[in-house]
């Protein structure tokens, strides 16, 4: 579904991603872990076509939608308008199917996105991404700044979409516990390079990974 080979992305003279190679099969739910500044969001933006690689190839089969870090809504527009614009690519402007999936959004529809709580905003960002009928969803920091119960509510929806509709998901997380709970497989990115990959069960047992991402009890 996603094939990345030898990807290099740089900002001026600084290299953000250094020969990254990864592959995600259709219907998989894969985690990408790593500390701040590791290049995770750069990878997300590159997959979404917002950044141009310096070298290497990125192949995405089907439509990809990104839930960017920090939600990135249109704060001046209503929730309904935010969702409608999410359908720009698909041409599908009617948010009714998304309301069926996330009924809370129907209640929020007339409100300005900028005044919502963090959890509500994340839900709008989620809904907006679904408006484009994606085959692949890249979620950049689902849990960041949200209370655990809010995160788990959103995570439930994500798992449901993955299991029942075969949506391929790349979950970019700092919260490794959450990522290991949701995903089968994970990649670990540090300073622009992939330093570990494998089944979540194995990685959770790997002392290096466990020490760095699970030991300090991040949440």
């Amino acid at each position: 579904m996603i094939d990345v080979t030898g990807l290099v992305v740089s900002y001026g003279s600084a290299t953000a991603l250094d020969h990254v190679t990864l592959s995600i099969r259709p219907g998989e739910m894969v985690a990408l872990l790593g500390p701040n500044g590791a290049g995770k969001s750069t990878l997300a933006n590159t997959l979404a076509g917002l950044l141009t690689p310096a070298s290497g190839t990125v192949t995405v089969h089907g439509r990809l939608a990104l839930i960017p870090e920090g939600r990135q809504l249109f704060p001046d527009l209503s929730v309904a308008d935010n969702l409608a614009l999410g359908g720009w690519r698909s041409g599908q402007r009617d948010p009714a199917p998304v309301y069926t999936l996330l009924p809370r959004l129907a209640e929020l529809a007339p409100r300005r996105a900028g005044v919502l709580s963090g959890g509500e905003q994340q839900m709008v960002a989620f809904g907006r991404a679904l408006m484009s009928h994606p085959d692949v969803l890249v979620v950049d920091e689902l849990s960041l700044g949200l209370a655990p119960n809010v995160t788990s509510g959103l995570a439930r929806h994500l798992v449901e979409l993955n299991r029942e509709r075969g949506l391929t998901v790349l979950l970019i997380e700092q919260n490794a516990r959450l990522a290991f709970e949701l995903c089968e497989r994970a990649y670990v990115l540090e300073s622009g390079r992939l330093v570990a990959e494998g089944d979540c069960a194995d990685l959770a047992g790997d002392p290096r990974v466990a020490g760095a991402y699970l030991g300090g009890a991040i949440t």
Binding site: G12, N45, L50, L51
Partner: peptide
């Protein structure tokens, strides 16, 4: 040139960000 081309996340004011 390196100095004038700035990364994506620089200041909101810019079409610099939009053009990437």
């Amino acid at each position: 040139r390196d100095r004038t081309r700035q990364p994506l996340t620089e200041e909101r004011d810019g079409s610099a960000a939009e053009s990437r």
